[in-house]
Computed example of a mutant assay.
Amino acid sequence: MRKRHTAIFISIIIALVLQIVPLPFQVDLYRPDWVLVVLAYWTMALPHRVNVGIAFICGIAVDVLMGTTLGIHSFGLSISVYVLAANYQRLRNYSVWQQAIVIGLLSALYHLLTFWVQHLLTDIYFQLDYLWPVLTSMVIWPWVFWLLRRTRRQLSIT
């Protein structure tokens, strides 16, 4: 029983680590939104366990780990997970490739929200480079979906 509860927590911790792993500057530009992708899977699979509150806490953790202003990532993750949680029953019926497009749209929403808040606070300007993680998040979705689904089924997480 305890394994079931910790599997979600461990997958989120792994996503947080992948979010901050040092990469060369040229590759870091394309880093997928690991935390958003993992939260998206668990929100679609188990909306009663992973919801906006968990997304808010994960966003605070991302803010602390990345050294950004507290609340920027939690705002973006909370809104993105809310949109996903409000439509999870419909999205479950989509194929993995259609879900990847939805993940891309959620990632774009997340990046635009975080940019907007950062722009209000620090006066940065928009560059198209901010949206590269949208494409890489779409590309990794089928593999993350497969891995987390397999884990959920093996551990009988409900």
Rank of each mutant, 00 (worst) to 15 (best):
K3T: 09
I72K: 00
R90G: 10
L131R: 06
L77T: 09
S78C: 06
F56Y: 06
F25S: 12
Y125L: 15
I54T: 06
Q26V: 12
R150A: 08
A61G: 06
G104Q: 04
W97Q: 08
Q19F: 10
G76M: 00
R31H: 05
Q99N: 04
W42V: 01
P47F: 05
P133A: 02
A61S: 07
N87K: 15
I60A: 13
L36K: 00
V83K: 05
L135A: 12
R153V: 11
Q19G: 14
G104I: 00
T114D: 11
Q19N: 13
D123P: 06
L147H: 05
M66Q: 12
L112W: 07
G59Q: 04
Y130K: 09
Y82F: 09
N87I: 11
K3Y: 08
G67D: 08
V96W: 04
L91Y: 12
G71P: 01
Q19R: 13
L120K: 10
Q26R: 11
M138E: 10
L128D: 07
V134Y: 02
W42C: 00
R49I: 05
G71R: 02
R90A: 14
T158S: 15
V144R: 02
Y94W: 02
W116A: 15
G104S: 08
M44K: 00
S78V: 01
L36M: 09
G53S: 06
T43M: 02
M138P: 07
M66I: 12
I72R: 00
V64E: 04
L135Q: 06
G67F: 07
F115V: 11
P22I: 03
I103N: 00
L155S: 01
P22T: 10
W116K: 14
I60F: 10
D28F: 09
L148F: 00
S107L: 05
F9Q: 15
P22R: 07
V102E: 14
L106R: 06
N93C: 08
I101L: 15
H5Y: 15
A108V: 10
G59K: 02
L106Y: 04
V83R: 03
W34V: 02
S11C: 13
T114L: 11
H73I: 04
V83D: 00
P24A: 10
F126R: 03
L135H: 04
T6C: 12
A15K: 05
G67R: 02
R149D: 11
R4Y: 05
P22W: 07
C58I: 03
V38Q: 03
T122W: 15
A40E: 03
K3C: 05
L77E: 01
S11K: 06
S78Y: 04
R90Q: 14
D33Q: 11
M66F: 13
W141H: 01
A40D: 09
I14D: 07
I10V: 15
Y130E: 12
W116R: 10
R150N: 12
Q154E: 12
A85C: 07
Y41E: 02
V50D: 01
H119D: 10
I54L: 04
Y88V: 00
L106W: 05
R90S: 14
F145H: 14
H111Q: 13
W143G: 13
S74G: 14
V37P: 01
V81W: 03
Q118E: 15
Y130I: 14
R152Y: 03
L84P: 00
F56N: 03
L70I: 14
Y110F: 08
I54G: 01
